[in-house]
Design a protein around this nucleic acid. Sequence first.
DNA 1: CTGTTAGCGCCTTCAA
DNA 2: TTGAAGGCGCTAACAG
Lengths: 375, 375
Amino acid sequence: MIQRNATMADVARLAGVGKMTVSRVLTGSAGVSATTAERVYRAIKILHYQPNEVARSLRAVNSKTIGVIVPYLYDPFFATCAHAISTVAKQHGYSVILTTSDENPDIEQKQTSLMLRRQVDGLVIIPVSDNDRYYSGEAFSRVHVVTVDRPVRGSRFDSVLVPNRAGARIAVEHLLGHGHRSIAFLGLSRTLYTMKARYAGYREAMSGAGHSPQPYIECGSPEETAALLRSMLNSPEPPTALFAGNNLCMRYALHALSASGIHIPRQIAMAGFDDFEMADVLQPALTVVRQPIYQLGEVAANLLFQRILGSEGPKPGHRVILPVELVVRCSCGCEPRTHKSAKEEQPAPGITSGQGRPPLDSTRETLDPPFDSGR
Amino acid sequence: MIQRNATMADVARLAGVGKMTVSRVLTGSAGVSATTAERVYRAIKILHYQPNEVARSLRAVNSKTIGVIVPYLYDPFFATCAHAISTVAKQHGYSVILTTSDENPDIEQKQTSLMLRRQVDGLVIIPVSDNDRYYSGEAFSRVHVVTVDRPVRGSRFDSVLVPNRAGARIAVEHLLGHGHRSIAFLGLSRTLYTMKARYAGYREAMSGAGHSPQPYIECGSPEETAALLRSMLNSPEPPTALFAGNNLCMRYALHALSASGIHIPRQIAMAGFDDFEMADVLQPALTVVRQPIYQLGEVAANLLFQRILGSEGPKPGHRVILPVELVVRCSCGCEPRTHKSAKEEQPAPGITSGQGRPPLDSTRETLDPPFDSGR
DNA sequence: CTGTTAGCGCCTTCAA
DNA sequence: TTGAAGGCGCTAACAG
């Protein structure tokens, strides 16, 4: 732990050449005679020399590092995105500085600015809401940023999203097709972009079928969800189906329902947004809107590198919408059958509306869901 | 994108002071008069100056960065560890360079050495097997390394582990207590440290009860697992219980069993290693050995920072074993009941062996499972 | 083909 | 309390 690392000067001295020659051998630039190169290689080996990338970063214009910020890593959705981004970065020989924001705008700001000070060449962020002002600061005028899963309002950041509203809508329409008229929407914090958009989709589906949308149910914790569901089911007109805005809501609801001994789909039908590993081995297998999670991260990272590497690419603020698909399993009331893409989605038996719907992957989501987020 | 970032020299010039004064204001060291400090702050604000951490790292002895390598990020176990490490790092004002090895020794080596070149102050690794030789290289004599989940044979790295063998043993003993005599062990690649240790625990339990352990079943893919299980169940003496070495095996097995319409635990009982989110909402709820996943990462990171920050700490090669607990649910054949710690674990109804067992958290796992890993 | 000079942005050292 | 010089390890730009 005492002796310092070998530097290029050490190698140069041992090989009896100048530092530049060593540098050239390492970067493979310009011509170095085979014999001197050999001497340099030998010295490198003897000294176990490793180039100092920090010094390189300081000297060069880029650091060959990108920053990644996700809300949580223990959430498989975010972790899978992060994995994809990391994989693409590796392919480009880049390192990834990764951190979590815990959905906390302050942490996100602090971590972002730390990454900027560390001279990252670009950033992939799953941004917390309400940091819009921060991101329009001039600190961001010199980095490339791509956001995933959520856009940043009014920014020139590229983003990669899914059609949340349309996805929720077709899932709820599927539920409606089973004859349900009273369907409740379960969400997390309504400040989340995805929750707002999915709730909007739910409302569209309900209104479109001539039923009144029910108020947003915010599932803060398993206990809260259980209490909410209990009181809901004891109300005069209990819902006959539930739509879960994401997997956490789904899990809370499943817990509560299973504790109450309520049978799905006989007593209450269910569908949710976002597929997961065990969704098809649950009893009943869950009907869900599947998102291309890995691709979200992959496309975002590729877009970022396109910018970093300076190839033309689309104009700033580019939006990529990746298609989702409705995976029909049993919790909605269907008998087991195979997956079908949302694009090919046919009305379920008994569905009322027969008009066509736009393909999901071309759906441009507006930035602000068309409803008052205050309620 | 054209104009360069402000540097300390810019700030100094604008404030009409020397660079050192700016530096002192920033680091808060030594005395700077309030009035000059004020001038400096104003200049900083005007120029939107942000210190360049790369330059700092080059100048300083440390980079305030640690490296983290996990096999995969889409595996919730690894991702949760990573989250914990990242959280601890954040508390110390450190950044985390994270990457995945994909269980590939080559990738692991390349990424590790990249991190070393980036001058990380320490490393937390979930190491791939068979990289032992690499890690004894002299490159590692000057970094602090803590491994998680798996040790590195013959290294001076600290590691944070769980009692794999003992955990598997008590789970299998629990199955034995239900009267099962033919229990099969399902694992992933047998080159994995955890799989070897857990299989050893399985064998201990079987032999201890006077039954012969069955050969290691390697679940390469869902299809392979399904085929393996099918042929196993059609054999003259089919197993009446299964122990899954981790969640992936568990999932594969669950899929196969559910596809074959086999009822758990009536037709076959199950237990597994590692708890997961949905384990208690599955039908039946799964009996598993729960590992303190987040703590594994947390303890490892804390140990690393103890070393980095130079406080004394334990001697190199320190092993921390974190306790696991058997979470008894229904897939083993038990009726629903509450969790109990492995330490308090009582024999299940009908269990034959009554002698005490050592508390799990004090179990020192030997590095090499006491069986020939060649088969 | 090879070496010298200079400087990336910061902070330690020393002097004022 | 403040500043100037110098160097961390590397490489672009210019000699030779």
